[in-house]
Write a protein that binds this DNA or RNA. Structure first.
Lengths: 310, 310
DNA sequence: CGTCGACATCATGAATAGTGATCGACACGA
DNA sequence: TCGTGTCGATCACTATTCATGATGTCGACG
């Protein structure tokens, strides 16, 4: 018989008896017989090795011993914890409260995510959403697998057996040109042949997953890109295009199409587009809030992205 | 099946499995079979209404679900509480730590209590001793019965069925005279007849339990006391005696006998002495620290007080 | 494709919790 | 002082729960 035999049942009985001042009252509250309460308290006292109640006998109320008072204080605290846990878990189950940590990267952050987050906030006002922006995809994946984030956006094509992937659609790579620059004038249509970029000084991001995909795509078209300006800020890139530094190949999502100083053209032949993906850990129990996010993201993707391939 | 069915056993299993990453490991730690752990986790999951572990199957370790992570955090907290409770209770049982609140009143505070507290501190260095000084006895008794203090000094004679009384000894009432005043010169022996006080201006305390006992005692000897100065500070009273304001009748414990300006004489016939008593609530489980205090106080009483009557 | 490792499940026996009845103690009122 | 009522303890009994060992199932790995 030791302290480890204390169970929540005992603490609940302790609380009830202390509140009611009688075993019978506690029995009523807890829905047990008086004998059950008597035995529970006896069990508790055996476990802690000392009496927790003084029983004056007769119709007088039982009172806490010093040990009982100490124990009761902890019992109250523990009860509070349990209730908080219950609350948190029901929040989690409903997906409408608690915490959702979302991994994201720049181009998604700019255009797609604000709309998704707004919708999610509206659907679950008490959900604490936190965003982790990180342009290196493998870092996002590591964070997801380690539990540092609950769900993350990624770009495909990608296959990873440890992830559960949901494709939202595709985001084509486009060429961004100075609106009245020579390349735009030479190519008045909606597209521009990839050969037109060969040897042209360009602007682009610093080496990252996204830029590598662009460069690989260009090389596949026979273009060896030459960069005269690099920045990871899409607005800065677009500003440089506008200023005539050179064209940029960017994912469409990253382009601010309201800018009159630039024009957007499709590459001919088109590069394989990247797919926008939401990922959660494979096999792991999903957070309902993450499920909700994915549903919302799919809706947003249908509206804002090209149809997903296959 | 509801959240109320969660028991500490479940949380212990949760912790063990989460730490070990396997049911079998947890079973080893807790000293159960693997089947038992499996059932405990299953019971926990039924109680909370959602899975707490993802079982990937095969030799890969089980991992917490989001719900499991939340629950585990609370489980850790609760475990901490339980351990703290165990610690506090063992402190209480040994009486060497924790908290002891002692009720006291002025004359005990001055001479008897410092020695007792010093001894107690030496015997139980980690015990947090707090003193509540209050000269109105019924307030001390109320505080004791309501649990605001754990043990209190009182003065007798007293009978109260709600209290468990321990008499430490008696503290006689004595007459304090100006050393070279007329009353001292007229009564060179060790005692003074009560009649000598009749009509003499005296100094005494404001009306309190103690002073009432003195006045009743004097009246029983046929003396109607007349006070020309009152203070509840024993030092002030003694100073007034020294200054020749008049004699005082005080409990011996309250007299600073090292003062050469005063002499102490027994009253003849003697008044019924007050008894010094330590009280704890009757019937209630005693605090071991209170028991220890009482034992120490009895020793101190034997040394410093007259033998307790009968 | 078979084996191994790990969890689930099942049948069983033991421990335990809960129940209703009864006992004993105490305060209170006649 | 003696019922009397109230309350907790205890008892015997029942139902539930718990733990076990054996077996089943699933996935990973070679």
């Amino acid at each position: 018989m030791s302290f480890d035999d204390v169970e929540l049942r005992h603490l609940r009985a302790l609380r009830a008896v202390a509140e009611e001042g009688s075993f019978i009252g506690a029995a009523d509250i807890l829905g047990f017989s008086q004998a059950a309460i008597s035995q529970q308290i006896a069990g508790l006292e055996r476990a802690v090795g000392q009496a927790v109640f003084d029983r004056p006998g007769g119709p007088r109320p039982v009172t806490l011993t010093p040990a009982g008072r100490i124990l009761l204080r902890y019992a109250e605290d523990i009860n509070t914890q349990i209730e908080a846990a219950e609350h948190d878990l029901s929040d989690l189950a409903s997906g409408t409260a608690g915490r959702l940590r979302i991994g994201t990267y720049q181009s998604v952050s700019v255009q797609l995510l604000p709309e998704i987050v707004a919708t999610l906030r509206h659907a679950a006002p008490d959900l604490a959403i936190s965003l982790v922006e990180q342009d290196e995809q493998h870092v996002l994946i590591d964070a997801l697998l380690s539990g540092a984030i609950d769900v993350t956006f990624l770009t495909g094509p990608i296959t990873d057996a440890r992830l559960d992937l949901t494709e939202l659609g595709t985001d084509p790579f486009v060429v961004v040109l100075q609106a009245d620059g020579p390349l735009a004038q030479e190519n008045p249509g909606r597209s521009i042949p990839s050969a037109a970029l060969e040897g042209v000084p360009m602007v682009g991001q610093h080496d990252c997953d996204c830029q590598m995909q662009i460069d690989n795509g260009l090389r596949a078209c026979g273009v060896r890109p030459r960069y005269v300006f690099r920045s990871n800020d899409n607005g800065a890139l677009q500003g440089m295009v506008r200023a005539g530094m050179g064209p940029a190949v960017m994912p469409l999502l990253a382009v601010d199409r309201g800018d009159p100083g630039i024009v957007v053209k499709q590459l001919e032949p088109p590069m394989e587009p990247r797919t926008i993906i939401v990922a959660v850990p494979k096999g792991a129990t999903p957070m309902p809030a993450a499920d909700r996010l994915i549903r919302i993201a799919k809706t947003a993707g249908r509206k804002r992205l090209a149809r997903a391939p296959r």
